[in-house]
Amino acid sequence: MSQPLIAARNASVRAFRHRPLHDARPALRVVAPPAALAARLPLPLTCVLLLTAGLLALLMMNIAIARDAFTLSELEREATLLAEQQQAVDEGIAAKAAPQALHEQATRLGMVPAPAPTHLARDGRVVVPLPVVEEPEPVVAEESPVAEEPLAADEPAAAEDPAGAGEPVGAEAAPQ
């Protein structure tokens, strides 16, 4: 027992002892029961009602949880199905959008690769790409070449024996 409690008990006893004997107690009288209590439901009935309500709530909650579990698995199934459908569609798109498939499809439709674009430069020049036919260089072509005659094909000289056989180094070759 804690110290304050002990102190309190002892204190009251001491107070009783020191009370003067001639100081008579007030007369006892009958206290009427509170009217409100009688109006209330009897306690057992309250308990039963509360218990029933609790049980009912618990039942409802369980039903709700179980129903949600069913909804959940139903929705999960649906999500899987939709994911599968999306995957199938994505797969189809990827196959159709692949460059080789587009190229094939375009060729079948009679399309040809776009020619080089014509550019309009900031200073107003029009840069025309070279068409397939042999024509002088387009607008911003380089200075006219000095020599007309193209160079003789640069032919690599005959290979000489590699210096160190077994190693890809040490060749005396004369590439272009």
Binding site: A116, V128, D154, Q176
Partner: peptide
């Protein structure tokens, strides 16, 4: 036209490059 790779010219663009023919 003086170089070894006149074939690599691209109209409208200046190209800098180098051919290589190695054994």
């Amino acid at each position: 036209e003086e170089g070894t790779a006149a074939m690599a010219q691209i109209p409208g663009y200046l190209v800098a490059g180098k051919t290589g023919t190695a054994q």
